[in-house]
């Protein structure tokens, strides 16, 4: 450092120095679109695997639905029973996802930050709803919320049973996406905020929550997607009554049982569109929040 300026001077190593480059333009910010050999191979495998498992079967469904022409779509959606099933499914999945965002974050928080007896056991049990065969999940829920409910809540064959089943099978998603992020948060970041005057609530809202947000959104996406596809537990629990407790996936099954493959494919592609829309919207929300910082 040869600069003989008075006061505090320091070697500001930055992008400003070489001739011609304007200050403030960071070179590092935009990654270049060049792949190394290894990365190219990785991308190739990713695309192949993804195509075989996801893209091709999905395209097949859409193609099949489209083969029936535009009419089959309109027919399927104009059918009131189908429409009711779609609305029930999407509405219930949305409610459960919002619920999960709150409870899942709280459960993750408790598991990471609090100390209480039985914590290790709770930590293991969280995954049970996900690990159980869904038909068993239906059985379990029926025992507690069915006609012989020990707590006097008979929700079997009511729309509530759909919510219950969705909530049960999607419980772990947000907990498990948020938990590791919360564990990795540095204590000193929160301490820095505290010594700058931030209250515990402000620290949670301005420091912790933004760090958890991507994980919460990822968990919410999984949770929603899992909910709209739930099938097994509802067979026992909801009774699948048309216009009341019949969900879209059950409706698809009955189309297939009636040999109406085109309708099944059309409804499937509608569900697919809903799932995609939700994924895209949540992703946009996440980006927006990340940018706002």
């Amino acid at each position: 450092m040869s600069s003989a300026l008075s006061g505090a001077t320091i070697d500001t190593t930055g992008p400003a120095s070489p001739k011609g480059r304007r200050p403030g333009r960071a070179k590092r910010t935009t990654p270049r679109n060049t792949l190394t050999g290894g990365a190219g191979l990785g991308l190739g495998i990713t695309m192949l695997w993804f195509s075989l498992l996801v893209l091709l079967p999905l395209s097949a469904i859409v193609a099949r639905a489209a083969a029936g022409g535009w009419d089959s779509y309109v027919n399927v959606l104009q059918n009131e029973q189908t429409w009711a099933a779609v609305v029930l499914t999407v509405r219930s999945a949305a409610i459960v996802t919002v619920l999960n965002i709150v409870t899942g974050t709280i459960i993750a928080w408790v598991l990471v930050r609090d100390r209480f007896p039985g914590k290790a056991i709770l930590n293991v049990i969280i995954d049970v709803p996900f690990a159980l065969p869904t038909i068993v999940a239906g059985l379990v829920l029926l025992a507690l919320y069915g006609p012989n409910s020990p707590i006097g809540l008979d929700w079997a064959f009511t729309p509530n049973s759909v919510l219950l089943a969705f909530a049960f099978v999607t419980l772990p998603f947000i907990v498990r996406t948020v938990q590791p992020v919360l564990e990795e948060l540095d204590a000193d970041v929160e301490e820095a905020a505290a010594s700058l005057g931030a209250s515990r609530f402000t620290i949670f809202r301005r420091i912790i929550l933004p760090s958890l947000f991507p994980a919460i959104i990822a968990g919410a996406t999984l949770s929603f997607a899992r909910a709209i596809s739930e099938f097994g537990s509802l067979v026992l629990l909801s009774g699948s009554r048309p216009f009341e407790t019949e969900v879209a996936s059950v409706r698809i099954l009955s189309f297939i049982e009636n040999g109406s493959y085109a309708s099944a494919a059309a409804l499937a592609s509608v569900l697919l569109a809903v799932a995609l829309a939700v994924i895209v919207v949540l992703d946009l929300v996440q980006r927006r929040v990340a940018r706002r910082g």
Binding site: D186, D188, V189, E191, A192, A193, A194, S195, L196, G197, A198, S199, I207, P210, S211, A290, G293
Partner: peptide, 25 residues
């Protein structure tokens, strides 16, 4: 007094930056 009320500036070895905020923020 809690740290919030001490009017003390603290700088940590590992910077403790707020990752999701710009430098100015």
């Amino acid at each position: 007094l809690p740290p919030q009320k001490r009017n003390v500036g603290f700088v940590f070895q590992h910077y403790a930056v707020f990752k999701h905020m710009s430098v100015a923020k």
